[in-house]
Amino acid sequence: MIQAILDAISLGGTYALAALGLGLVFGVMRLVNFAHAELITISAYILVVTNDLPLLVSFIIAAVVTTLLAVAMELLIYRRLRGTGPAIMLIASFGLSVLLQRVYELIFGALPKSAAIAPWMSGEVKVAGASVTISSIATVVITIVILLIAGYLIERTSLGLQLRAAAIDFKTARLLGVRSNRLIAAAFAISGVLAAIVGFIVVVENPQVSPMYGVNITILALVGIVIGGISSLRGSALGGFMVGVILSLLNTFLGNARVYAYSWLFLLVLIILLVRPGGIMSKANEMERV
């Protein structure tokens, strides 16, 4: 039971981090970045490949590469597409996502690569009489720490203020002196760091990394930011968390019918969207107009 609750919270936390990364970028430039999946994947790949190095070194390499890739995406592709409308940017990001998947396939091969990353994490400890895995506790702790840091960054620093302002109204924020290029690049960099952390969390649980490794989590995180409330970062994270918790609970309690967990999740998403088109964090009648 405790394990089930911890699993739900840790899965929710993972999706919340992925959703936060996606939400940051969406907030500043209305871009649904499908290629976020490939940021998570590259982080996982690098952790697997550099498994011989100490964990910290290996993670730092992964984080640096992932962040550079995220910033490169913005500089080389998304910057040139700014102002073309969300649909075109979304399709472009999907193209980029497929492109990177194929590049990974060329570099790392189509078959999953795996390595035992931080094997001590799969051990179990006794908590209140029940045994739980260390990795689920670690995930919960990491998530809470990162969310606190991100919360501080977003609520208390000038960068965070600019990010929030840009998420609400990008044009006005620019008029008031927010430097758009720098801000957007910063948003991509932070989303890269978050993706690297998500990559670390998921690769500990499932070390079989293949080119499409990050796709599933990204899609669910996307669903999360929409039901949470697209226009607020807090809503994004909350939505991601909810999707993870719901999915985990469905998996635990559906029993044999758990293969249909996704159907129930998506039906729930549909209902939430129909009742609250702007997401849970919005007012009842607020919705995007176009």
Partner: peptide
């Protein structure tokens, strides 16, 4: 629904 909400739905 409109916009991204329609896309996700």
């Amino acid at each position: 629904l409109n916009g991204l909400a329609a896309g996700i739905a």
